[in-house]
Design a binder for these strands. Structure first.
Lengths: 234, 234
DNA sequence: TAATATTTTTAGAGTGGTCTAAACCATCTA
DNA sequence: TAGATGGTTTAGACCACTCTAAAAATATTA
């Protein structure tokens, strides 16, 4: 049996790996899970013994196939819970993350099935993140890029908004920036301050840290309204 | 912060206390939480240091007011979850207990509020057990008595069915014995085997262990159909 | 009431997860 | 290429929770 602590480490490694590719550094994991690097090193040893992680000393760690499956399961739980809370318990988009974090390790397979059924097997959560399928097959690559990587004048549609920070999320919810929103980049000022125009012509200036939480893809010419990962081409 | 392990001990003590009154023996707690008596002794020490339990060596333990409040909170979570699972996620009456046990320690105050609201602030769970109110004021005494304490020929209505054992629960659900069911005791055989007649004239023979899980109160003469704890008198 | 049986506690050890401080390795820069 | 710097691991300790085995207290019964 895997402890919820271990599940948290695996989830963290998965997400870091998804952003920057393997291997992931000890200190990056430490930051993500909120532990000291020394603690992470010792946990990586036990994860390695259990065959969930492969690692090379002083270099970094990487999930094994088995470790990835566990991470996907946790992620599926997390994102289904986020959906459920938003849809059926009236949570705001920006509130679901913490609750899902607490619950994700403690739901049964049965609960997972019933929640998925109640939601009609959703494929993305309220932040735009993809939900792993019930068979836990690997998620495919993400074609979205950080908002900050785009140029002034480009029109983009929001794919995902990172659920890492609660305040950022509320800020963006207020600003009307949610997955699916079309944005035009109006200005990029020093220190990364980004100004965008939303669909209703309102302009928002976002500090770099916040802008970085937004992943986008180019807006299709003829307003294609497909969900993330399902762009209608042809 | 209280660990979920501690919460389990407090819940166990509360429930034992409710059945037999304080003080509660070390071994009774050990049986309930599934640990050795030695382990319970040491946990009782730490619970005492934290002011949640009062105890006298070799005699037994008792919850303090603060300990009782914690237990009531856990119980409220548990029973609200049972209701929610049955009502909104289509769980069978006999399935909700284990899932609620896993989740009860991990839901936020916010979640508790929203679930209670979605259910319209229920006062009993699917097993007929009372749900502590949001202010966690003590539950009042329970006037129900074990089915096995009644005589042949008496007509009784089921108040509660203990949720301790999954198999018993399924057995009873099949037999149509749920809170609110009116039963007539047809026979009590050796070894405590009890035969009852349900409303639809079907007869069921229940082994003592199962019959013991059923709490009842006398059936009112003129078929009063009030919920448990709310008998309409006058 | 004395011997016996049962329950409870103590003693001591082990596991999992965490920390700090110190040693270690790798990489960057002069 | 030799330090200096910064991330990583080791060493050692600690806390929470658990166990088994043995000692102590209480309850039962002759």
């Amino acid at each position: 049996m895997l402890s919820d602590v271990m599940e948290d480490y695996l989830k963290a490694i998965y997400q870091l790996q998804a952003r920057t590719g393997p291997p992931v550094s000890t200190s990056a994991i430490a930051d993500t899970v909120g532990k000291t690097p020394a603690t992470v090193t010792s946990m990586l040893e036990t994860l390695e013994e259990r065959g969930l992680v492969a690692r090379e000393k002083y270099k970094g760690a990487e999930l094994t196939a088995e470790g990835e499956t566990v991470a996907l399961e946790v992620l599926r739980h997390h994102r289904l819970l986020e959906c459920y809370l938003a849809e059926h318990l009236d949570y705001a988009w920006s509130e679901v993350h913490e609750e899902a974090d607490a619950l994700e390790h403690h739901i049964s397979e049965e609960f997972e099935r019933r929640v998925a059924a109640a939601l009609d097997d959703p494929v993305v959560d309220p932040h735009g993140d993809p939900i792993p399928s019930a068979d836990l097959s690997p998620l495919d690559e993400d074609d979205a890029t950080p908002l900050t990587a785009h140029d002034v004048g480009s029109r983009v549609v929001v794919s995902r908004v990172s659920d890492r920070d609660r305040e950022e999320l509320e800020y963006l919810a207020d600003a009307g920036v949610t997955p699916g929103t079309v944005l035009e980049i109006v200005d990029i000022a020093p220190f990364g301050m980004v100004t965008v125009r939303t669909e209703d012509e309102a302009e928002q200036s976002l500090p770099e840290s916040v802008a970085d939480a937004i992943s986008v893809r180019p807006a299709a010419e003829a307003g294609a309204a497909a969900g993330p990962g399902e762009v209608t081409d042809a």
